[in-house]
């Protein structure tokens, strides 16, 4: 069972906002369809890079994520929720969150509950690391706003945490206004970011 809410993405070809749907409870079929669309685009853009002499090593680090596996591993577990943003009938981004088991780390809210973003990624055709002309913007903002709203609805007051991949640190620190708690040696050395209720409110304003 899934819920759909109306949202908007920026169509980067026209610069205008386009109507989109935020899906709460992405189904296995939707994941499989997304992966079957994402994978060839991903491979194609990687092949083009390879032909152009761009080193394989510059592939985005999240290109190996397997959303089908994540869906199967968390299906039926109430601590996890999977969200997607759909536009033009295609999945433009996916996010897996946990609503238990990841207590806050900022001193003033240490140990309090929060929404922890296990994984978030946009479709490969929306990533400037993979394609020259991305199709949609605002995928990240819509998904982070979703996490903040979920946190508010759960009684967590907007508290959200995540481990950013290096190329995304600016988005979380600057554009989302999250607190950077530095490198987490227990999580591949990725930097950990978290919001306070005040930061969450400021983000949504």
């Amino acid at each position: 069972m899934s819920d759909r809410s109306r949202t908007y993405l920026k169509d980067l070809r026209t610069g205008q906002l386009a109507e989109a749907s935020l899906i709460d409870g992405v189904s296995r079929d939707e994941i499989e369809r997304s992966e079957s669309l994402w994978r060839p685009i991903l491979l194609e853009s990687l092949e083009i890079r390879q032909r152009s002499g761009i080193a394989k090593g510059s592939w985005p680090e999240h290109s190996h994520w397997d959303w089908r596996k994540k869906h199967a591993a968390t299906e039926g577990l109430i601590a996890y929720r999977m969200f997607g943003v759909e536009c033009e009938g295609d999945m433009q981004g996916l996010m897996l969150v946990s609503t238990a088991g990841h207590p806050c780390r900022i001193a003033e809210q240490r140990g309090k509950e929060q929404v922890y973003i296990d994984f978030v990624a946009s479709a490969p055709w929306n990533s400037r690391e993979l394609v020259d002309s991305p199709r949609y913007g605002l995928v990240g903002r819509v998904l982070i706003a979703t996490a903040v709203q979920l946190s508010l609805a759960e009684g967590f007051r907007g508290r959200v945490g995540l481990h950013s991949l290096p190329q995304s640190e600016t988005f979380y620190a600057t554009n989302c206004g999250m607190t950077d708690l530095g490198k987490d040696t227990k999580k591949e050395g990725l930097r950990y970011f978290e919001t306070t209720p005040a930061q969450a409110a400021a983000f949504l304003r």
Binding site: L77, I78, A79, A100, G101, E113, E154, G155
Partner: peptide, 13 residues
Amino acid sequence: TAVLRQALRLYQL
């Protein structure tokens, strides 16, 4: 209610 829901999530996990 939220505490009990958290407890249930963790217990199931």
